[in-house]
Structure formats: C-alpha cells, structure tokens
C-alpha cells in the first residue's frame, strides 16, 4: 500500500484519450451542422476579393447593398412645410431655417396616359441637427430605462438576498423559495421576458424597465446572497456576543463589509442594463432600439449609422465613468 502512495499519478491515461477523441468527434459533427464550412469559405473568398485575386465575394455583395447608404450618417431633418400642421414661419424652431428647393414631381397625364414630370419649388423646414436631437432624446430614454431597471433590481434583490443567504434566512422553506425565485429571474433572458412584459404593460419603456429590472434582480440577488454568506463571521459574532439583534448585526457588521462589492455589482448591472436597454427596443421595449428597428425596416441606413454611433459613444462614456467610480469607491484609501 505504501508503494502505491509514493507512486506519482500519470499525467494522462486511457480515459483522457477517450475524452479527447470524443470531444474531437463532437467538434467535427457540430462544425458541419452549424455551417462553419460556409463561414470559412466566405472568409476565404472575401480575403481573395480584398487582395484583388477575385472579382466579387458573397460578403462584399451582401454588405455593399447597404454600405453605400450608411455613409454619411443622417443628422438633419427636412420637412415639407405644407405637411406641418399650423406652421408659423415667424416662429421657427431653434436653429433651423427654411430652404427653397426644386423638386421633380411626376404626374400622369389623364389624356395621353403618359407620365409627365414637372419641376416645382417647395419650401422645406430644415433642422441641421434635427435627427441627432431625436436620437439623443431616444438614447436618454434608454439611459432612463437602464437606471429605473437597476433601481427596481436593487429594491427587489436586497430582501431576496437576505432570505437566500444561508446564515440570515428565517427558515429552510423561505431559503429554497427565494433561491428558486432568484434563479428563475436569472434564467429568463430579458429579450424573451420583454415580449411578455409588452403584453402586460404595453409597448414602450415600462415593458423594458420591468423586463430588465426583473432579470438583473436575479443577478444581484445571487451576488448579494453569496457575499452575505461569505462575509467575515468575526465581527458578526462580536456583535452577537454584545447582545445585538439580527438586523443591527446586518447593518453594522455585514453591510460595511459587503458594501464595496455591492457597489461594484450595481455599477456592473447599470452598465449591462444600459447596453441591453438599447437592444430591447427592437422587440417593443422602448428607447433607442425602437428607433433603430424602425429606421432599419424603412431602409434608412444613414439614420441607422447615426444611431449606432450615438449608442457607441454613450456606452463608451458610461464605461469610463463606471470604471472611475468603481476605483474611487472600492479603492483601499480611507
């Protein structure tokens, strides 16, 4: 027996080889099934296209349909003043002007039944940054959705966390109940739950807020609960020995310990919700996504570019701010 104890375990045995072969076959099988060969083909083709060995490629054909229209990004709005209700030329919107433009109009001549074109001068109200303004208003709505969703997540997750932390749950039934609520909330992706929320709350931000809020409450609940369970027991025991009640122990010995992680989680959830808030609009959750979907369906790719740039800038700025905040709040300086 002693000799056995002193023998070094071999680095691999027949099990390892079987496992590697199994993974290899699954890999090959799945590679065919999901169309990976197609990806390789097309990437190869587009490489040849780029270096000039081939005339066209499927990728460049596909993208060229919209790439010409995507640039420049649409920033201004131009409206025929005849279509604006109660238009008042003496009281124009801020930073806008009226432009006189010749427009080709086509009409069918009833007698000859031929299409005739004629030129007509039409007055347009031009707002040079009009569309940018629309996008900014919409992205602000998305930011608001993210904030409210995170707030709702916070409110729901704090009691859930204490009920699903082993050392603070009142009893086992409550523990398992809240644990299953936490994992249930996390299990449903927000893009799916927003479909149900649209039925419940109608199209618009409310549905988005509820879908994002419930999903991220699942995340926060789990993270918080684990932190409460792992918090240093020493100070908690010290306060217990001083005759302190449970909630006082939570407030004075648990919360100060877990607060830095809480703040980090909340910032992460806020960051994540902001990115998701731009997406859930695609399925009726309000915010910038709704605008993006609308423009994409109308083939207005210049507008789509503007929206994507604005989303990128906002997400980037927020990322920077939250990284700074996290460092400042969690940093070890007193």
């Amino acid at each position: 027996m002693l000799a056995n104890n002193k023998k070094l375990k071999p680095p691999f045995n027949y099990k390892t080889i079987v496992l590697v072969l199994l993974i290899f076959f699954i890999f090959i099988f799945s590679f065919q099934r999901v169309g990976m060969p197609d990806i390789v083909d097309r990437l190869y083709e587009v490489t040849l296209d780029v270096i000039g060995l081939k005339e066209t490629s499927k990728i460049s054909e596909g993208l060229s349909r919209i790439s010409d229209e995507m640039w420049p990004p649409a920033i201004e709005t131009k409206k025929d003043i005849n279509l604006i209700l109660n238009f008042d030329a003496s009281n124009l919107p801020f930073y806008s002007y009226i432009e006189n433009q010749k427009v080709q109009l086509y009409e069918t001549n009833i007698e000859t039944l031929e299409l005739e074109s004629r030129e007509e001068e039409v007055l347009f109200l031009v707002e040079p940054f009009g569309y940018l303004k629309v996008v900014i208003i919409k992205i602000i709505e998305s930011i608001e959705i993210a904030f409210w969703a995170s707030f709702i997540a916070l409110i729901i997750s704090i009691p859930l966390a204490f009920y699903s932390a082993k050392n603070y749950t009142p009893n086992r039934i409550v523990y398992y109940l809240s644990r299953s609520i936490v994992s249930g909330l996390r299990a449903i992706p927000e893009l799916i739950s927003v479909l149900f929320m649209v039925l419940a709350f109608g199209f618009g931000p409310a549905a988005g807020i509820m879908a994002l809020g419930l999903h991220s409450a699942g995340f926060l609940g789990k993270f918080f609960a684990e932190d409460i369970e792992n918090a240093d027991k020493g100070p908690q025991e010290a306060l217990q020995a001083l005759g302190s009640s449970r909630w006082r122990i939570i407030k004075e010995a648990v919360l100060p310990q877990i607060m830095p992680q809480y703040i980090a989680y909340i910032l992460y959830i806020l960051d994540r919700n902001l990115r998701m808030a731009t997406v859930i609009g695609l399925v009726g959750g309000g915010g910038i996504g709704q605008e993006l979907k609308g423009r994409f369906d109308l083939f207005e790719y210049g507008h789509v570019t503007t929206i994507i740039i604005v989303i990128f800038i906002v997400v980037f700025i927020f990322d920077q701010i939250s990284a700074k905040l996290r460092n400042k709040l969690i940093g070890n300086s007193s």
């Binding site: 020493g234 306060l239 020995a241 001083l242 302190s244 006082r248 010995a253 310990q257």
Partner: peptide
C-alpha cells in the same frame, strides 16, 4: 448576561472597513 459581559478576540473581530470610533461605539450597540 451579554449586557454585562464584553469580549476581546484573538482575531480582533472588528468591522475593518469602519472607523476606529465607530468600532468602539458598536460596543454599546445593544
């Protein structure tokens, strides 16, 4: 009993992220 007994620990068992004065005040929390 706990109101009349105080404890000093091997690992100090202080709330390390709180201030000195806060930790001392916690002795009177009950």
């Amino acid at each position: 009993i706990r109101n009349s007994v105080a404890t000093i620990y091997q690992n100090f068992n202080l709330v390390t992220r709180s201030s000195i004065i806060k930790n001392i005040i916690l002795g009177d929390i009950a």
